[in-house]
Design a protein around this nucleic acid. Structure first.
Lengths: 208, 208
DNA sequence: GTGTGTGAAATTCTTCACAGCG
DNA sequence: CGCTGTGAAGAATTTCACACAC
C-alpha cells in the first residue's frame, strides 16, 4: 500500500526503459545508469526499487530482466486493461496509430468514438468505432477502464462526464479545457501541449 | 529567483484556464473554483498566486483578466520564442496541425525536420521544412530555443544530441526511448504515452 | 458571510552517508 | 573497491487555520 505517486511514475517509466535495455542485450544495470536516463539521483532509484520490492533485489547492479519482472508484478502491469479513444481528429488518430504500432502490455485500445459519423466511416482501423452518443453504453458494455480524450476544447467536459458515467476509472485528457469536476474515484491527468510549452518558457526566463 | 517548479507548472496551466474563462465571459473567479479545475486545494492556488505576485491581488475573488496578466508578466509568457518539430510522422504532423490551429502566445513553431525527404515534399504547411541532417545548422541559424521530438525510438538519442548541439534550451520529447545524457543546461521533459498508461494501471491496482 | 493572505504545522519526498556484501 | 540497502537528516511542498477586508 501507500506507494508514493512519484515512485509509481518513475517505476512506470523504468519499466519501459528496462524493456529497451533488454532488447539491446544489456543484462545488468546500475542505479546510477538508470538515474541518468530518468534525470534522477541514484539514491532515488534505489529507494524506489526498495519501496516496491520491500527486499533486497541485487547486491551488485540489477539484473535487467528480473528487475523488470519485479516491477511488473508489484505495479500490476501486464494485466491487460481496456481503453478507448474519444475524438478521432488528427491528434486522436495519431494516438490510435501510435498505440497500434507500439502496443502496451497493460492497456489495449478496443474502441474509438467521434461525433462526426462521416469521419468514422473513413478511418481504417481494426478496432471498433462508434458515434459519440454511444459513449456511456459502450464503455459500460465493454467494461472499458480508461479513456484517452482528444476532442476540441468545448466538447471536453461533456465527453469526460460521459466517460465517468460509463464507469471508467482513469482519464488521460489532451484537450485544453478547464474541467469543472469529476467523481473523486476517477483519476484524471491532463496534458495540454500549449501549457507544457509555457512551462519551458517560464523556466527559461526564471534562470535569467 | 526560486519559484517552486510545481508552482510554475500550475500557473502555466492556470494561464490557459484563465484565457478560457475570459472567453466565456466570466469576470471573477475564486481560488476554490480554480483549484477544482486543476485538481488542487484552494490554499495551494492562493499560495501560488501569492508567490508570483508577492502582493495582494484581490480581496474577494480574482479578476480573471488582471490575474492572467499578472501571471503572464511574472512567468515571462507572451514573449514569442521559436520552436521546431523533429519527426513529421503521424504524431509529429498532428502536433504541427494542432499548434497551427491553437497558436500559443509564448511559442511559435517555425521549422520542421524529418529524415524522410519524400515526406517533406508531401506535407502542406506554412512553416519551413528541412531534412534531418540540417538540424544543427538550422537551429543555430534561426535561433530556435525549443524542440518537440516525435521520432521513432531508435532515432531519439541522435536527434536530441543534434538539438542540444544546435543550442536549444528545452526539449519536449514524445519518443519512448531511454535518453542517456544531455547537457545540464538543457531542460528535457519526456512524455511517453505508454508509460503514462502504465501509471494509471499501477494507481488503479494500488487502490485495490 | 464569503473569500483572500499568510505564518506555522504537517506531510511528503529527496538526498545523504555509511554499513555490508561480494 | 564498486554498488546496493537503508535509517536518519534535510528540503521542498502542501495543508491548516485564522486574522482581516468587504
Amino acid at each position: 500500500m501507500g506507494l508514493p505517486l512519484p515512485t509509481i511514475t518513475r517505476c512506470s517509466y523504468l519499466f519501459d526503459i528496462l524493456r529497451q535495455l533488454s532488447v539491446n542485450g544489456q543484462e545488468y544495470v546500475s542505479s546510477a545508469e538508470l538515474g541518468n536516463m530518468l534525470g534522477q539521483k541514484p539514491a532515488t532509484i534505489r529507494k524506489d526499487i526498495h519501496f516496491l520490492s520491500g527486499d533486497s533485489v541485487a547486491v551488485h547492479k540489477y539484473d535487467v530482466k528480473a528487475l523488470r519482472n519485479m516491477i511488473q508484478e508489484k505495479l500490476g502491469l501486464g494485466i491487460e486493461r481496456r481503453a478507448c479513444i474519444v475524438g478521432l481528429g488528427k491528434l486522436g488518430s495519431a494516438f490510435l496509430e501510435h498505440a497500434m504500432a507500439f502496443p502496451n502490455e497493460s492497456y489495449r485500445i478496443i474502441a474509438g468514438f467521434d461525433s462526426n459519423v462521416n469521419r468514422l466511416e473513413t478511418i481504417r482501423t481494426s478496432i471498433e468505432l462508434f458515434p459519440a452518443h454511444q459513449i456511456v453504453e459502450k464503455i459500460r458494455e465493454k467494461a472499458i477502464e480508461l479513456a484517452i480524450i482528444a476532442v476540441p476544447p468545448l466538447q471536453a467536459q461533456d465527453v469526460i462526464d460521459k466517460c465517468c458515467n460509463g464507469g471508467v476509472s482513469g482519464i488521460l485528457n489532451f484537450s485544453p479545457a478547464p474541467i469543472r469536476t469529476i467523481p473523486s474515484h476517477v483519476v484524471l491527468k491532463s496534458f495540454d501541449i500549449s501549457s507544457e510549452l509555457n512551462i519551458f518558457a517560464a523556466r527559461a526566463q526564471h534562470s535569467e
